[in-house]
Design a protein around this nucleic acid. Sequence first.
DNA 1: TAGTGCTGGTCTCTTTTTGAGACCACCATT
DNA 2: AATGGTGGTCTCAAAAAGAGACCAGCACTA
Lengths: 136, 136
Amino acid sequence: MDSKLFNLKAKLEVYKAMTNGGNFADCPVRDVIQGISGKWSSLLIMALAERPYRFGELRRLVPDISQRMLTQTLYDLQRDGYVHREVFPTKPPSVEYSLTDLGRSMFAPLQMLVQWAELNHDAVREARAAFDAAQA
Amino acid sequence: MDSKLFNLKAKLEVYKAMTNGGNFADCPVRDVIQGISGKWSSLLIMALAERPYRFGELRRLVPDISQRMLTQTLYDLQRDGYVHREVFPTKPPSVEYSLTDLGRSMFAPLQMLVQWAELNHDAVREARAAFDAAQA
DNA sequence: TAGTGCTGGTCTCTTTTTGAGACCACCATT
DNA sequence: AATGGTGGTCTCAAAAAGAGACCAGCACTA
């Protein structure tokens, strides 16, 4: 099998899905991507990929998230099926958040992006500095 | 038990995982991820990965983006080094946006996420429906 | 017994971000 | 002379996010 041809075909398939046949509005990929492209979503998924966390642990782990946004982002992730929420009847009741199978399967490609970010953050910062210098 | 020490250890573990060995003060992954996690960023990168586009083409391609957000998102992507902006001295002057090498290298892992989204958007939609039904 | 802290939130208010749409100069076509 | 396409900016309203007060329940402490 010709791997280049295969890649091209896969690529075209992806574009087709992305564009919903030429229409970028009402596209399922967009629907899914937007669900995880919030400011805190990917961060929380990365944290929960390591191990389950409780609400207060996450709050302390990500010090600059407001309690309100933590509640809401976890709610949204739970709604989309990435995160499982379990209440334990301890006193006081504790709530544990963990990734579902769907969440874990989504984390695999997300991790690629994280690795890219780690490798290329210098290039991005340099581009930013160069752009700002050129603007001034 | 020393809860402060425990929390600090957990913190370091997670950020180590996220940054693949980096430290907390300079968390590059978050910086980079947030640059492409906007509502329109990934969408425009996906479009420009196909071929260069002009401003008006992009506007028609993504009908529900406002002109203001298109301008701003392209500006941000250009600043971070993902997108190249070239003005052609035609009459009226036309502006072409294209991915840089950095942008193309970033699109590779982003594409993984897009493929995942294409394969799993049914699962996500079902999770959403089930969750909403359970809430009602 | 009264205070203090920890649990996981909700509620309100303010600030930031986004969206909708008017407006702009320039030029070609009709 | 009017119309439409070029790539924007500007203003104002709406939506989203941030800051911080507040809550009930229980455990520990003074």
